[in-house]
Structure formats: structure tokens, C-alpha cells
Design a protein around this nucleic acid. Sequence first.
DNA 1: ACGAAACAATACTAATTAGTCAAGTATTAG
DNA 2: CTAATACTTGACTAATTAGTATTGTTTCGT
Lengths: 156, 156
Amino acid sequence: MRFTAQEEYGLRCMLQLARNEDNGPLSIEDIAKSEGITPHYVGKLMRILLKGKLVSSTRGQNGGYTLVKPAVDISVEEVIHVLDGRLFENRYCSKYTGQIDHCVHTSECAVRSLWSTLDGIVSSILQETTLRDLAGESENGSSPKRDPERSELQLP
Amino acid sequence: MRFTAQEEYGLRCMLQLARNEDNGPLSIEDIAKSEGITPHYVGKLMRILLKGKLVSSTRGQNGGYTLVKPAVDISVEEVIHVLDGRLFENRYCSKYTGQIDHCVHTSECAVRSLWSTLDGIVSSILQETTLRDLAGESENGSSPKRDPERSELQLP
DNA sequence: ACGAAACAATACTAATTAGTCAAGTATTAG
DNA sequence: CTAATACTTGACTAATTAGTATTGTTTCGT
């Protein structure tokens, strides 16, 4: 199981915007510098985020990207979803079904259900983690914060 | 976030072996037929599992593969680990660090810590799920089983 | 011994994902 | 108005992952 480069870098770019929230737009150049990746690649990622309606852009001098809503209202789940879809959505069950395509394989069902369970759990954690939680430089640090009231995940 | 094809198919092959546990070795042909994928590909996967010491092979007539220990003692975590390493191990933090390579980016740390948290949670679920849990055709069905005593994941 | 059954190893092709490049278009400061 | 700034697009190359093919080696049944 892995996160794609797109998810990793896309999320990092979002965090840069989150940190800059109150200072107007951040240019591709700025983001690229802070993250140490090329402007071209940042551009590509930002376009994906733009299409996903997580950021808005303004051109011309002093232009750049800004979050479309406050960082505290953007969950990591939304970001990951835009960058790479949902886990269970990508799943091979439907895609790589082998030659046989109805549910002859008990294993297919079993595996499918396992992925689905994991997806639910991971999603719920990512939903509770906001960009602000991760971006906070001086705050709590880095661990995702969780609301103790809502910490009881629905475990299967 | 996604599971690789290798994880998906490798796990399925293991489940076939788990189902056949008490009937001697299962040949590549057999597995390939049950899963609807090519024998060549099954062969490749089985070799990975062999190197990972999860299965043993016998050649010659009536040969094939068998689990190296009972299905009930093999966790899905072990299997996934052999097939694709651990999530946090694969992580881009160390690999795709951009041009800058010490911890200048707060975002790097934050993201790294998030991945690590997720890895821990996913691993702990996969550790508690055995091949038997998934393979059981007539049993409980397909949802991973969890020991209620140990259901309280360490959430951050 | 011999031949069929079955695994083993390596090298190759195809598909997907990652990352780069070049040529645009829009916006604003002066 | 114009030049500099900055986003936009689409096509391209490189790297990784998925899947296939070929050829070889071991073991067993007769």
C-alpha cells in the first residue's frame, strides 16, 4: 500500500497555502522554493487542485493561488480525494477481475471487503485531520489531532 | 493511496493456498485457474512469496506450493509486507525529499507523521486479520474479524 | 532410464505514473 | 500601452510497475 507522489506533493503544496492563509496568494515560484521541487511540477499539481476546486488562482502581478476556504475547514481527506480518488474506488476488484467476472472467487469478495474496511478507517481519520492541524507550525506540532468525543471509529 | 496489483494478486494466491490447506500442494496451474490470471504471472508472484518465506514449493509431479505455517497463524500484514514492504518504509519523505534534505519543511514533518500514523493503524488491523479469517468460505463470511478485547487501537 | 509434471530464473514488452518543456494567455503596475 | 509577472495548456520524456515469454532445472511415476 502506498501513497502516490501526487498525493504527497499535492498535499504539501496545500500545506504551504495553508501556512500563508492570511497573506494573499502564493505563487508557483514561492511554493516550488519552499518545497524544493520544480515550478513546472508545482504548476501541474496546482492545476489538479484547481480542477478539484480546492484552490483558486489569480493571474498577473502579485497573483498566485489561495485556498478556496479556510484551512481549518479543509480535511486531508478532501485533498487526497482530489489528488488520487478514494482507495476503494481505485480498487482492482472491478478493474483487474481476471478472466472471470462474476463473484466466483470467494477471495475476491473477501479481499474487496478488507480493502473497503481499510478505506473506511483511513478516510475517517483523514476526514478528522484538517490542513490547519498539519500546517500549524508553532502549535501542537505534527500529529494529527483528533476530537476525543469522536475518537471511536466504527470498527468492523 | 492505493494497493498495488502485486499486493492484491499475491494475497489472493495466498488465500487459495489457505483454502486448500489440508489437501497437499497447489500447483501454479491450479491457482491460475481459480483466480483467472495467467500461470506465468502466478509464478512470478509465488516466487516473491517464496523468498518471503511464506510458502514452500515442491517440484515434480504432484508438486506445487503450500503455506509454510497454518493459515490461522499468517496475518495479512505479513503477506502485504512481503509483497510490498511497509507503508511508512516506502514513504516519499526519505525518497522524494526534493532538493533540500534536512527538516526545513514543517510540511515534510507533518506529512511524514501523518503517514506514519496511518501506517500504524492499518498495520494493526492487518495484523489482527489472518488468512483464515479471509479464506473461510463457509464461516463468518468476509469481514475481518477483530478480537473485541484488543479493539481499541492506539489512536494519536 | 526416461519423459511428463511442475517450479526457477531472467529477460523482455506494455502500461501507468512521474516529472519536464515550450509556447501560450491573462493581469496589473507604472 | 507596455512590459513584467504569473497562471494555462498540452505534448513530451523518463521512471516505475505490471504482465509475458523463453529457456532451464528438479522430481516423480513407471
